[in-house]
Design a protein around this nucleic acid. Structure first.
Length: 275
DNA sequence: CATTTCACCTGGTGGC
DNA sequence: TGCCACCAGGTGAAAT
């Protein structure tokens, strides 16, 4: 479910509700998939620490942890939601959804739960002294400069859509916002990244930042089942102009939106508005 | 090295 | 109703 705007919305929600709370007990499911760090190690690391801040890095939710809210951090809990992951703040009495893989009991009496039917998500505990702070694989789309953005694609022979999805270049962009930003910039998804003119790359960066900011304002896109930390759906899906609109008329020129596959992902574009 | 393809999972939808 | 093919917000390993 989650790309940058959805992850940002969830991280903000969890931060607002759980900043300063202490993790007193941790439960993990017996599935092995979600654990980048062994469950027992994660539980050892997490129990007793205070949540200082919850923030987004790329598509990762990073919880900074320490002895006190304001003191130095000693560890980080890093949640990647994969395709179907949810991170929820609940009461302990709330029904436990199927595919719940983690439950963190907090001193305030609430719980943070990780639910992930497809099990593509990942949970990791980092000891700061050992691994250093998590910075993510690539550049941040919302703060990257025009020069840095242009440099990412120089000499690259892959499709611009595939390049946008490459997290080690830019992190946080996924299938929805790649298609939506390319439409808004008027660029075809299969264009070779390294052949785009500087003016086109400038347009793409502006379109991408605008669409991401607007999506964050609207709480992200709920295509099927995405909800934020409070269980509330986003509504940026109402603003989608091409994503999952194959065969439907372009909202600008009424030409049917085309669906193709680029880099193994469903890709949607207008053959008239995009060049 | 850069790029492409596919496996990893469950669940929903639509055709027959 | 059942069965099947296909699709879905992502990534990383393997192949090219």
């Amino acid at each position: 479910m989650p790309e940058l705007p959805e992850v940002e919305t969830i991280a903000r929600g969890v931060n607002e509700r759980l900043r300063g709370d202490c993790i007193v007990e941790v439960w993990f499911s017996s599935y092995k998939e979600p654990f980048k760090t062994a469950p027992a190690k994660q539980a050892d690391g997490l129990e007793g620490l205070v949540i200082q801040r919850v923030r987004r890095v790329g598509k990762h939710i990073v919880c900074d942890l320490g002895e006190n809210v304001d003191g130095p951090s000693s560890g980080q809990w890093i949640v990647h939601l994969g395709m179907s992951g949810r991170l929820l703040v609940t009461t302990p009495e709330a029904d436990v959804a199927p595919h719940t893989h983690a439950r963190l009991t907090l001193a305030s009496g609430r719980e943070m739960r990780f639910v992930d039917p497809r099990r593509f998500g990942r949970l990791e505990f980092r000891v700061l002294a050992k691994s250093g702070a998590f910075t993510g694989p690539g550049a941040e789309p919302l703060t990257i400069t025009a020069d840095e953005f242009a440099a990412l694609f120089r000499g690259r022979r892959l499709a611009i859509k595939a390049a946008l999805l490459n997290q080690s270049l830019l992190h946080g962009v996924g299938n929805i916002y790649a298609d939506e930003s390319l439409f808004r910039a008027g660029i075809r998804p299969k264009r070779m990244a390294g052949r785009l003119k500087r003016e086109e790359l400038d347009r793409l960066r502006m379109a991408l930042q605008q669409v991401l900011r607007q999506a964050i304002e609207q709480g992200g896109s709920s295509v099927s089942d995405y909800v934020d930390a409070n269980g509330v759906r986003g509504f940026f899906q109402l603003e989608h102009r091409v994503y999952l609109r194959g065969g439907q008329p372009c909202l600008v020129c009424a030409t049917p939106i085309r669906r193709i596959v680029v880099g193994g992902r469903g890709t949607h574009f207008c053959p008239v508005c995009q060049h």
